[in-house]
Design a protein around this nucleic acid. Structure first.
Lengths: 157, 157
DNA sequence: ATGACATGGACAGGAACCTGTCAATTCGAC
DNA sequence: GTCGAATTGACAGGTTCCTGTCCATGTCAT
């Protein structure tokens, strides 16, 4: 660390903070969704198909994940009765993932818990600080996306 | 999302940004460390023991991970010759993880790449914005740590 | 219509984290 | 010194993500 410039040091500090916050957020998400029988990953999938059924691949694109990862989560959700595969009029093999009544109930429950939590957390931070954090992190993300883009040469991702 | 207050909405935006940035950072870390034959996780472990050998459990505490996770990474590093287990004068069973010459070489290589990258990224962001992002994310992390703390009742964690 | 190409589901295997449990060791209170 | 608590390594098993591959299906230019 001692050989880094000031700006590099500041950016590295952001990286370490983001890693830590990310870990805590996953923990918080699991705690929010556990009472409804869900996890962070499963809750996210239910959230995506809340506005309407979608194929596994479409959900994956929305979430920025690989379709194989979402497939696993969707299969687990289906075997727990939170979602079901329904026929897709536009594609013979690619069925749509659709919320069941049980899935919708669970999602509503998590959303209520999430609303209370986000409100509590959002209120505990100075508004200006929160806004600055969002903007700063978004800017960093955009730069990093550009930085990473040139070398990505995968037909799957 | 529509039932959230303004502050809750802002906080949720921060969460989504952090998730995305975290994913990109892992990608960037892997890309930085790949030329040296490492990954993000392995590089982190090498970084911790750079200032001196330490037990697996101590490394885990430093990194905020479970010792079992670090054990796996350390074993992998050992089998690749980047680290070796050396006797611990203070503990019969708990050996210390120590850098080998090869491990030190790899670490130096990654650190150089990291310095260049962090400098480039840090310079691409307005200094004020970067500082605000660090402060905002840190504040959010601290609040979340407090928010999460009361319920944590695990003798391992 | 036919053949190239992108998209999608399925399956295999791996990385990095987690939890839970066990026995060995160390440490502190007494 | 001795006993109980805390720490540590080891092992088993699980989650969520990844990559790579194969084949079926849909789309589009020719």
């Amino acid at each position: 660390m001692s050989s880094l410039t000031k700006k590099a040091d500041a950016f590295t500090a952001l990286v370490l903070e983001v890693f830590q916050l990310n870990g805590l957020l996953l923990q918080a998400g699991d705690r929010l969704s556990a009472p409804a029988g869900l996890t962070s990953a499963r809750w996210q999938v239910l959230g995506v198909i809340d506005h309407g059924p979608a194929t596994v691949a479409a959900v994956a694109r929305t979430m920025g994940l690989k379709r194989q990862s979402v497939q696993q989560t969707a299969d687990a959700l289906a075997s727990d009765g939170f979602v079901e595969y329904v026929d897709n009029p536009h594609h013979q093999r690619a069925k749509c993932v659709s919320l069941t009544a049980s899935g919708r109930r669970a999602l509503r429950k998590v959303e209520q818990a999430h609303a209370a939590w986000a409100d509590r957390m959002g209120a505990s931070l100075a508004p200006g600080l929160l806004a600055a954090a969002v903007e700063g992190v978004r800017e960093a993300r955009l730069r990093l996306e550009k930085d990473l883009a040139p070398e990505e040469r995968s037909h799957e991702g």
